[in-house]
Nucleic acid binder design. Sequence first.
DNA 1: TCTCGTCCATAAATGCTTTCATAGAATACA
DNA 2: TGTATTCTATGAAAGCATTTATGGACGAGA
Lengths: 343, 343
Amino acid sequence: MNIYDISKQAGVSIATVSRVLNGSPNVKPSTRRKVMEVIDRYGYTPNAFARGLGLDTMNSIGIICADSSDLYLAKAVYYIEGNLRKNGYNCILTCSGYEHGDKESALTLMINQRVDAVILAGSNYIETDTDRNLYIRNAAAQIPVFLLNADMDCPNVFCTMCDDFKATQEAAAALIDSGVTDILYLYNSHSYSGLRKLEGYQSACHMRNIAVSGELMQFYEGSREDIDGVCRFLCGLHEQGLSFHAVLASEDMLAAGAVKYAKLQGIDIPGDLAVIGYNNSLLTTCSDPEISSIDNHLETLCAQLVRTCISVLNGEDMPPKVIYSGELIQKGTTRLPVSGSQK
Amino acid sequence: MNIYDISKQAGVSIATVSRVLNGSPNVKPSTRRKVMEVIDRYGYTPNAFARGLGLDTMNSIGIICADSSDLYLAKAVYYIEGNLRKNGYNCILTCSGYEHGDKESALTLMINQRVDAVILAGSNYIETDTDRNLYIRNAAAQIPVFLLNADMDCPNVFCTMCDDFKATQEAAAALIDSGVTDILYLYNSHSYSGLRKLEGYQSACHMRNIAVSGELMQFYEGSREDIDGVCRFLCGLHEQGLSFHAVLASEDMLAAGAVKYAKLQGIDIPGDLAVIGYNNSLLTTCSDPEISSIDNHLETLCAQLVRTCISVLNGEDMPPKVIYSGELIQKGTTRLPVSGSQK
DNA sequence: TCTCGTCCATAAATGCTTTCATAGAATACA
DNA sequence: TGTATTCTATGAAAGCATTTATGGACGAGA
């Protein structure tokens, strides 16, 4: 059943059927009714491929993320998909993993699929070595690229992000102001935002005239799901005699590991160890005590990102960067004066 | 840059370019080289829409789930997407929410997008009122439909599931055998698998000659993210004087709430309260003590589902149902003899 | 010389959108 | 009231970029 069949049944040309289908105003009401009646009778829906060929779009947008099962990225995908759907777009999802080459080929595949735009969810697509971002520049030469929580200067690349630097800096400063000078910064990603957070921590130390010790910046290499691994990792540091009275983590799961570690060692939280996570995810309320965490307003970020995306696709001029602030949500693992989260 | 341009540059016809592109054997090696060279030089990739029109497929498969940010469904989507990608398919993701009408329209949209097949991830697509499953039957009349963790008898519908009934039954039986006769069954979904689990609980009670009390089967209506809400809910039951020495939950987040409740009330786990969750998700290791949980081998399920899907698309005859067993993973919230998890 | 196989070009088919042209109706003007 | 002008509604046909069925040219083997 194609547009010819419908046109024949309705006694009009295919052009008229097409006009009816696409809501063109130049159709006599009686004709429209006649055509609609036939369409309904046969339950006809236009062939999306043919439509795509003619219009050079199928209204679909690619979402690439490293791992959509990650608590944070899963939420990002969910919010992005929902907003896109409301705007009449559908989403092609690909998980690229964390390997550089795989990220690149995922992007190429998307472009070959002729998506209208591509969204890279998660900052690990941007590297500090700018040469390695070349594949994104190449992609942006073909279709608009939207980055969530990453920053890059490139025409046709639009960034929507949280100021992770500032949020971490403020949190660290608040910890220092509360009297803790030995904050362990714990992170598990060399991604763009991962590094920005690290810099925020360092900056706070500098501002407060505290020496930044390499030992107090620890990189956790284990799986993102292995909370016990984090716990063991911290126990190891403990045994080596490393002393710290706060853990500032780049991700909630690391903070959850820190809480476990403290309990195992009989360390009082937040009395003897303050813990701050990042993302304010479900994990923070599952832990005991609940974990204080920096919320970077993911839902807002995603809504804004999609808004930018839609506007760009509509040919509007859009700012290349939109930056939001993060906010420390205090729960059971800190006891800081509230000003810590204010700007 | 289209296939005509390439054919002109290479001095062959477009048919030959197409043959080269699609790896047809009937091309002289020297011709193939010549064409490939031009293709590489111009970085030509065939237009996916035109290809789709000609072949009536773009090798894409729809994944519909209620909420891809849910811990469990996010994993499901991740595993399914990964397996499909390995097989050369790409995924169009839609989150339908839990409303009946929205589920139906999501499915219709997918079909109009001309996906090759559609995967419904999560059992809430199947309802006990079979009339309400009509939309799935209609969909299956057009393209193959694959259900994860749900059961339905319908041509062109293929089910891959865990035997949630048996897994819950065994867990409940093990609890009873350990001396607990007042098990609170806590659930938050009337979905197919939600009900199967409930029946498993009831069956175990029957088998062990324990009266099934309506009060001991509690439905939690709150958000799937509100662990504290579950805690409050249980505190409420406690205050009403309901007595129970085990919580068997249909989902880990409910179990996490139960653990919180016990701590708040000073109830010893697992001594005075055993807790069993379902899905064996990240939440189980975040909680303290870690939560014993039924693992339904989601990764295996998804791999099998995709295998079935690919086979069906290749025209192979496939069994309409594949059923796996669940397994109780004991952690800190139970102390049962190990045989509980064996069949 | 006939047959067969290999390799490739021509052309039809896929199902839409859209431009262009035009018939007829409606309006303007004398 | 008749003619010129504009609008409205529609059809014909030209894209869009592929795949594939058909058949022809050519060379090799019998």
